[in-house]
Design a protein around this nucleic acid. Sequence first.
DNA 1: AGTGATCAGATTTTT
DNA 2: TCTGATCACT
Length: 792
Amino acid sequence: MSYLDLLNDAQRSAVIHNEGAVMVIAGAGSGKTRVLTYKIAHLLNNKVDAFNILALTFTNKAAKEMKDRIQKIVTGNESLNISMGTFHSVFAKILRVESTKLGYPTNFTIYDMADSKSLIKHIIKEQDLDDKIYSPNSVLSRISSLKTNLISPAEYNSSDDYLNEDKRAQRPKFGLLYSLYCERCFKSSAMDFDDLLYKTNVLFRDYPDILNKYQKKYKYILVDEYQDTNFSQYLIVRKLAQLHKNICVVGDDAQSIYSFRGANIQNILNFKKDYPTFKMFKLEQNYRSSKTIVEAANSVIEKNTEQIKKNVWTDNEIGKNINVVETINDIDEANYIADIIKNTIFTTDDDYNKIAVFYRTNSQSRQLEESFRKKGIPYKIYGGMSFYQRKEIKDLMAYFRLTINNNDEEAFLRVINYPARGIGKTTIDRLVLAARTNNTDIWTIMENPNLFPSDINNATKTRLKDFAVKIKGFTASLLQKNAYELASYITSNTGIMKELFDDRTPEGITRYENVEELLNGIKEFADSYYVEEVVDPEALFPSLDKYVNEISLITEIKDENSDKNTVSLMTLHAAKGLEFPYVFICGVEENLFPSQLSLQSRKEIEEERRLFYVGITRAEKELIITYTNQRYQWGQLRPAEQSRFIKEIDHKYVDFVSTSEHYSYNNDFSKNKFSDNRDDYNNNDWDISEFQDKTHYYKKIQKQTTIATNSPAFAQNKKMVKLEEVINTPSFNDTGNNDWDEGDKVFHQRFGNGSILNIEGVGQNKKASVLFDNFGKKDLILKFAKLTKLNN
DNA sequence: AGTGATCAGATTTTT
DNA sequence: TCTGATCACT
């Protein structure tokens, strides 16, 4: 077989060692993914059924990459039958099959971070706790770490240690919050990210027959990025591998960068205990980077105390020294990077997609974006606000979720009054109260509002009923309409389409287009629906719930521009597993990288150092590290200083450069102008290409629109829209007390006595200008103002 | 109920 | 600086 000839000795040994427990310690750039893919190919070539293979990755991106690679080297469609994906997605699928055992419906919702946060906020508020002491973020991260370590609310609340710890930390109610949070998730038929692993553990613990079923199925288990697995994941893998004990884990302890999320290097040590006869293979030859880069990276990582011994080396050329560049401030830094990129492209004839810029925090991308736009450099930002996090997408998805799972409380709260249908906070409070006092659920109340006593007025009751009927109608269509048909039906039937279409601001147009894109994605899903194992005919039907299940764990939309020729901008965390010929790491400053929050302990600083190591080892040919002396942060210019990590690179691999020599004119300029007016400085000296900043363009348009408000055309337009609104208002004819006249003397509860100067508008929108004796002139909408006419 | 205005808080990383 | 949340106002 020719593919084995493409491997070095260590790689080949790892690939052909199929049976038993295997640990592959793979240095950066040593062909880890190659080993994993070839290993799977080798299994398939040795008559292992694809259905018996489980391959777990850390990110969706890694899963997709591995799938693509395997498809290329394995003939036929066999690779599609491998259970491959992130821990979360693979076990979410299993949970869908087994959820009823745990008291969850098959169509349980998966709460994302935003849902979890919103829920915990509600709970904190309901408990009347101070959200400064119980900050939603800190509460959530503690809950997450408990779940990751498989500590249930009951266990927590019966442990004196935990309770005392909370008392000491002035957060005695934490245990209660944890319990309530889990209860509410359960009532909503929802699982959060951690639940997907936690509940899998519960399932395997409480149902040995189910565990056995999957143990039998998964004869071969492979785990990528093992250094970043947490305890919950470790235990699932251990349980599943117990029967066949064919388990292969691949990782690099030097690249463990997710301990903040519960990742535990101990898992590597536990591996030795759990499988005493395991075989270890070390991949130490680096094929990616120049000698300079490999050795510089080694010189950094050796400052860490705890690590598995290995010697990463390379046969590649020595290559250029690393440039460490001192810049004046963040703008100068971004401009410098943009300049060097242009120069590199110009002199080497390489493409933009050979270049990547890494940073520690997402917020650093903004300045880079601005400079790149001005210099006409095409770029793509990875991570940050993803497509599915956009408001308009979340709103629509919430309708889908509520349709699929009527218990989904977060989805319910999101859409109950969107688009506005006159059901506000007060009504929801009354609804919840009515449900509680009548000992039933809100849907029963909404559907039969007159059967239960409540404070909800009649008009609102009708609205609630309409909403409930509407959603139930969608739910009933789940198996009648396919995903696309139902999704577009919901989009237009709820008025979302009209709402977005009517908003002709540039942002509104973008939102409309995003919804169109989502619908297109759903259409594509419905048209190309494929099922691995046909269990029943229903499984063949591309229903909306199947679509939502599929994408609820995906954060990035499939990118059609991925092969476009652009520079890649991303955080160092997102860079893991990637490689580029030219790499920039920017903002390498104390308090930023290493992050200020990590300076508390040696462990955390070592993790930051590993992150730096990951960044360095992404580079193939050239590495440029930048830092600035001043950085704009929290709306303020703050002094910055070179990171300790720069000093840790063996200086024989480094050339130090400063922009103040190259751009001394900028320097002078900044002294006079910088602190006063960043925009001036920003625009200085740089050719503004036709590659325009979209947001700036939008801002300009918005301004024009505001000015144009007074133009006759606009006014006419506005009148038409208004008229339409008025006609559509049910209470159009309900004019109420209508007989106001100019000159009338009136009384207002707040403003006291006054006289009407002028009346305008009709019906609902009737307005009065009133000159009050003590408060001057006020414009009041009569519907709300509750004026009393004074007889004189 | 809905809207605009003002104020406080945030910027670590991701499934 | 930018965002979200709350509040005052109609």
